[in-house]
Nucleic acid binder design. Structure first.
Lengths: 225, 225, 225, 225
DNA sequence: TATGAATGAGACTTCATTCAT
DNA sequence: GATGAATGAAGTCTCATTCAT
């Protein structure tokens, strides 16, 4: 029932067999790594399964023993990222971060995710642009977004117990979408100053937006509806 | 030098020849309309030029007289939307909207664009997901985004003359990215209530973010840098 | 019955109408000139009628009023060359050249034709390589070659009245083929020294070959085969 | 460094992969055989890859596994002929032919090659007319011609050690070009008598041309220059 | 199990030629 | 007569996936 569980099952459903031997695991990793690089460089449609197999240095037939088709590779990539992001999120929330003032919590969150995004350029493609091309990926993306948003919503509820769940989920969704697009926007530029500025604005924007909801001062809570 | 001019030139550069006769114009329109529908339904890569020609009820050779290749059709679509959005934006700013209080201005802006987005579902694909697949489209998108952001920045500067241009452009970019993603998010759901809620949050978020910058009370202006 | 007559009729048969007005003649010339350049640069198949019309600065429809199809342009080019070559040959034979010693006659002939070939690089394509692609051209080529060979044979018979006609025609054919290939070979190199050397060898070769036949000393005449 | 080696490498470079299994070799052979027939019948440009695959009774995709494009088939054909001709030439020179008097050597050479040409009508197309259309073929042709000419030159030098290398190469080139065009000329006619006559003249022509150079009587050697 | 040669539908695009204006 | 937009058959080549070895 946990996210990890759900996604993991989704992940392995996309694969023909669960690689148990060391070599198989190594091969699957190589496939995913090379596929990510190629998707990033050439785009999904322009990336051939043969090219992936070639770069991963495995026979094409073997690739098809791990993945039933090309889309499954993209899905597996999406799941791998989802797991990593979930881990990142969990790590963040098991530290003292959740006990920081909102402003600091947001700064930390934005920076943490930014580092991850910056280190994984493929992520934006997989989670941002492959959606349309491969409906399967979209599904994984949406499922994952939802899971994260629910966890964020739970966190918001813990911050401000007066917040009702539906409201918290709405806010979580809006905040998640916003943070995601601004991360993307920041990463799209090579101008390091601009990048920092965008992140700074993102933090302000989130703070200004969330403060009225999360500040435990009921007098500031906006009326529902 | 105007945006319309720039985009129009870009538009016609993407086409083999400028259709001047009534029938040609009609045909180009049909090509674009059908292409939009197909891109939306099947995705860009899965949409064949043959299918577009078939749906538009013109011979394939004729399609290629107007567009040198499939990507050019997508570019033309992007330009068409860019022009319409620019028009929408200009119309908004030549009304009294700009003299409204910030909150009302934002409400109006969000609603106006939302109506347009809702009426043109293809827009999100063209401006949101086709980027990677066809670099030409990305270019049109980015040019257009930049133009709009500059106009928004100019508007911000007029609202608050103390704002410096670079700052205004940054804020405009952040606000534009945010509004765009939330519009998309709103449209992604079929739940009309949720959709309204997302838009309401978008308005709040923008207001909370922009007010400190645009409220002409210098004491509230955040220090630069 | 003259060559010029035969070829001229062939030439105009390849054209839809005999251009009588000055502008038409000018246009046909431009078509041929540009076609020649394009055939030379791109090859026959890669040269589109549209490209020819474009370069010649005439509408494509007008091109098709002068030539029924693309091959007709190539044929017309072949005929134009045939006429020029025939003229060259006639001019040579109406001078004192025919009264020179064989060696001098051959030197003059080789050089004269070489100058023409060098000045008309399209000739080799039209007469050498377009044959296969367009059977019509092959026909014009062969007709022309035959006419020239017959004139050469007549000349040989005049040189040595003891030569019978069939023999003379055979020799003329062999000599013509040889001279043609060596001209081509000479022109294929950019090394001016090598080019001169090839031509020098061509002259020797022809002299050594023809002398026994044409030297009016019956004792040297080879016995008929 | 041997010709065979050079050409073989060129040959396999033109192919996607070296066929190793019996079936593959058989298939490549069928492709080449049918391509040759079609090139001969229809011309290179008019011969479609589909038609070749159809005649060879293999799927088009399989054809493209062996050859990256249509031109590569023509190149492979050229290389196949080059190898056969080289073999023919080598065989001739490892017999006693080289020890025969010049006249007999030439008779034998002309006849030997004529038999081969007559048995392989595609050769003339590939080596004579495809040049322009496909630059790759031209390259193979020229490389091959050069190799043969060098071998001929070496033979000439052995015949007459007083001949310098550059001179020998020039003569070899002239003789090769001449013999080739006369072979072609002979084959172009269906009149068997005329064909024989052309060949007879070719032999005379070559003998008369080469004798002064190769006859080991230095008094007859033409002065260089 | 592992492999990679084989498959063939189908994609995009071109271009000689026509014919309505 | 002059024009050039319109046509659509046909060409080359790709590639996801299979399956015999």
């Amino acid at each position: 029932m946990s996210l990890t569980h759900v996604l993991a099952s989704s992940f392995f459903k996309s694969m023909r067999k669960k690689p148990q031997q060391a070599r198989s695991q190594e091969r699957v990793k190589r496939i995913l790594d090379e596929a990510e690089r190629l998707f990033l460089e050439m785009g999904y449609e322009a990336t051939t399964t043969k090219a992936i197999a070639l770069k991963a240095e495995i026979p094409i037939g073997t690739l098809y023993q791990f993945f039933p088709n090309r889309a499954a590779i993209a899905v597996a990539l999406a799941v791998r990222y989802a797991e990593q992001l979930q881990q990142l999120f969990s790590d963040l929330h098991t530290t003292e971060a959740t006990r920081l003032p909102l402003k600091d919590y947001l700064n930390r969150t934005v920076d943490t995710f930014h580092e991850f995004y910056a280190a994984h350029p493929g992520l934006i493609i997989i989670f941002g642009q492959l959606r349309q091309t491969a409906p399967e990926i979209q599904k994984v993306n949406m499922e994952f977004d939802l899971q994260i948003e629910q966890q964020v919503a739970e966190f918001f509820c813990r911050c401000n117990p007066k917040l009702d769940v539906a409201q918290a989920e709405l806010i979580a969704k809006v905040a998640s979408d916003t943070i995601r697009v601004l991360q993307t926007s920041a990463l799209a530029t090579n101008d390091r100053t601009l990048r920092e500025q965008i992140l700074t604005e993102a933090k302000k924007l989130l703070f200004n937006y969330l403060q009225p909801y999360l500040c435990n001062d009921s007098s500031q809570l906006p009326p529902r509806g």
